[in-house]
Amino acid sequence: MLKLISAYMIMAVSFLSYGQQTKGNQSTAVETKIIAVVNKANWCSVCKANGERFQNNIMPYTTKGVAIVINDMTDKNTIEQSKENLKKSSLYKQIYKTNRKGVGRMLQSCGLVDGKNKSMVTGIVTFIDAKTLKVVNETSIAATDAEIKTIIDNLLKA
């Protein structure tokens, strides 16, 4: 229960900080360069196995220009709430309309069967350029610590 509460707190803070930064608020200390949208669900085995480790890897980057947005796909209610938040943040199209390539293993890992909408894949993070709102990378949260750090470091350098 405590993990669920902290996950929702992080989601709320992420949306608030991203919203402030995209409205030209000059009082924010760090300019958002990359938005990391994390597709997660309480029933996802990949999320359960890797969520805390992934969070520990990505949280230090929030002070370096990475905003974290949680797309909670646990049930119909959380999906609808997340979709509304993504629409308000102008990120909906990037998450729900983008044709995802190479997600077959992630679909199988999460127990999703063929024919499911690929935008409903959990256990992945989509990195979006904060200025152009274009998807610049996508990876599984099951990627190794080194892979995750390399991806984020390279995106921040670009």
Results as ranks from 00 to 15, higher is better:
E52V: 13
A29Y: 09
V46E: 08
F54Q: 02
F54N: 02
K40W: 08
E80F: 05
E84P: 00
K83I: 04
T63G: 13
I58D: 01
T78Q: 08
N71M: 04
D75Q: 02
V66D: 03
S27E: 14
C44G: 06
N39I: 00
N42T: 12
A41G: 15
Q26L: 15
I35M: 06
T74P: 02
M73A: 08
I79H: 07
A36T: 09
D75R: 01
S27F: 13
E80V: 10
I58Y: 00
N77T: 14
S82G: 06
N56D: 12
W43M: 08
Q55A: 13
I68P: 03
T78A: 04
T62R: 12
T62V: 11
N39L: 04
I70T: 11
S45P: 13
A41C: 06
S82L: 09
V37D: 10
S82R: 10
T28P: 02
N50R: 11
V46G: 06
I79S: 07
K76E: 14
T28S: 12
T62P: 00
D72T: 05
K83M: 13
T63L: 10
Q81L: 14
V46K: 08
T62Y: 00
Q55P: 00
N77A: 15
C47E: 03
V37A: 11
N71A: 06
N56T: 10
I70V: 12
E80D: 14
I35H: 07
N56C: 00
K76L: 10
N71Q: 07
V37S: 08
F54P: 04
M59I: 11
T63N: 11
Y61K: 01
E80A: 15
I68Q: 00
I79C: 09
N77D: 15
S82F: 08
Q26H: 13
N57C: 12
K40H: 10
T63F: 04
I68S: 03
M59K: 13
I58F: 00
I34R: 06
G51N: 10
N56S: 14
R53V: 13
I68C: 05
V69G: 07
Q81N: 14
T62Q: 12
V37Q: 10
C47L: 04
V30I: 11
V69P: 05
E84K: 15
K33A: 08
C47R: 03
S27N: 15
T32W: 02
M59S: 13
W43C: 09
E52A: 14
M73W: 14
Y61C: 01
V69F: 08
T63H: 07
I58P: 02
S45H: 02
V38C: 01
E84V: 10
Q55T: 12
D72W: 05
E31P: 12
C44M: 06
K64G: 00
K48Q: 15
D75Y: 04
